[in-house]
């Protein structure tokens, strides 16, 4: 059993799932402009992470499928989600929807980050310098996503929970 391959596959899946979640959140939150554009970029970043990982997985005899390239605004249900976003976007409850999406993204990004820690340990133990530098660079990008999500949640929560309750 290729245990390293399995670990890399889990990371790959986590990145692809996170990309999916960014795409869906971006479409759902089209009226939250800053979140919309960030989701768009982070989805691309996750796909790129998955694709990069695929090229390294070959070294560990693991064959991963080509990464998706779903983009915010281009899925089959995009226009529906966009419309719902606009309809809900004029209600104070839309802040709750935003918080819920941020929570989901934050949790999944943490999961991705965990897998990057493991990938870094694999790179070190197999003395693969090139993989190690790549893991380091991509993991830092994931950590930046987490910081961004955290900051958004800190800003959004008082307005969603305290102001809108009146």
């Amino acid at each position: 059993m290729n245990k390293i391959g399995l670990a890399l596959r889990e990371l790959y899946r986590a990145e692809e799932d996170l990309a999916d979640e960014y795409v869906k959140a971006g479409e759902r939150l089209a009226v939250e402009h800053e979140v919309y554009y960030a989701c768009k970029r982070f989805a691309q970043q996750c796909h790129l992470h998955a694709e990069t990982l695929r090229t390294f997985a070959v070294r560990y005899e693991e064959e991963l499928p080509a990464a998706d390239d779903d983009e915010v605004g281009e899925t089959t249900t995009a226009s529906l989600r966009h419309r719902v976003s606009e309809l809900l976007g004029r209600r104070p409850e839309s802040g709750l929807l935003l918080l819920r999406s941020l929570r989901q993204l934050y949790l999944q990004a943490q999961e991705v980050s965990f897998h990057w820690i493991i990938a870094g340990q694999i790179a070190q133990a197999t003395r693969d310098q090139e993989f190690l530098s790549t893991v380091d660079r991509l993991h830092r990008e994931t950590l930046t996503q987490i910081k961004w999500l955290k900051a958004q949640a800190k800003q959004a929560s008082p307005q969603a929970l305290v102001a809108a309750s009146g």
Binding site: V31, E32, R90, R91, P92, G95, Q159, A160, A164
Partner: peptide, 8 residues
């Protein structure tokens, strides 16, 4: 945006 959603 907050004024748009109605919390401001």
């Amino acid at each position: 945006r907050f004024a748009e959603e109605g919390s401001i």
